[in-house]
Amino acid sequence: MTAVRPGTQSAARAGMRPGLRTALYGLVGVAVLLLIAELIGQFGLLGTTWPPLTSVFAFLADPANHTLLGNALSTTVTEAAVGGLIGIAAGVGFALLASLVPVLAPGLDRFAAVIDAVPAVALAPFLILILGREGTPVLVVALSTTFIIYISMSSGLATAARPYHDLLAVLGARRGTRLRLVDVPAALPKLFDGLALAAPAMILGATIGEWFGARRGLGVLFISAMQNYRIDLLWAAAVLSVLCSLVLYGAAVVAQRAIARRFA
């Protein structure tokens, strides 16, 4: 880290725009992180379990591995996407329900808190019985996404300021009309905050679900690679899962910024 310090300091002194400087710092930081990981691997500081990153990327680039990795990746991404969409729909739906029928709200709030506290592992026997081993990952994703989206959407639905509600009341709006014209648009920034949080949770949920006896997916690959001493495969799968999470997270953050500009 000392090696890069003089360079960045002179850049700071040259009076760069703060945004640019932040990006540069971040890039340098990530580069240093990757370099350290590479060096640990090159010199075998942590033994054979920590390969050089270059060899992991070489493994990823090798067409011979593409079928195995591609199958696992598409399985996990599909589970995350399907479960995520179900979770988003359910979370938004329950939040709207709680808003339209306030009597139901305390029960739904409490239930969401319980769902959050229940460890996904503990739900395994329950979920396997409902959907089988192949369907469990989707259900794990859907459950954790539902929780995050329900909480963020219902806190978003409560953000519209009181003058708006007064206005709509005087104009003679019914509850549903107010929800559609004011509360839902006002909730969009918080909903997208929730999506950014849910994005990595979707990949995590899918891989957790795969641990309970699924036949394919990145989560299965993690375990089988570990048990068979396939260190390169283990790392390649891990890198893919991180890249997936980052892409989903990045997309959610970009959407969230655009929404926040327009609706907040």
Binding site: Y25, G26, V30, T49, I203, T207, W211, L234, A238, S241
Partner: peptide, 29 residues
């Protein structure tokens, strides 16, 4: 500020590593 500027994006990347990927690697280590 310099160190925090350098570490923040890296921390974000490490934060999204699924624990399911972390456990097998740490187990081998």
């Amino acid at each position: 500020p310099l160190v925090s500027g350098l570490l923040t994006p890296s921390a974000l990347i490490l934060r999204v590593v699924p624990v399911t990927a972390m456990i097998p690697i740490l187990a081998r280590l």
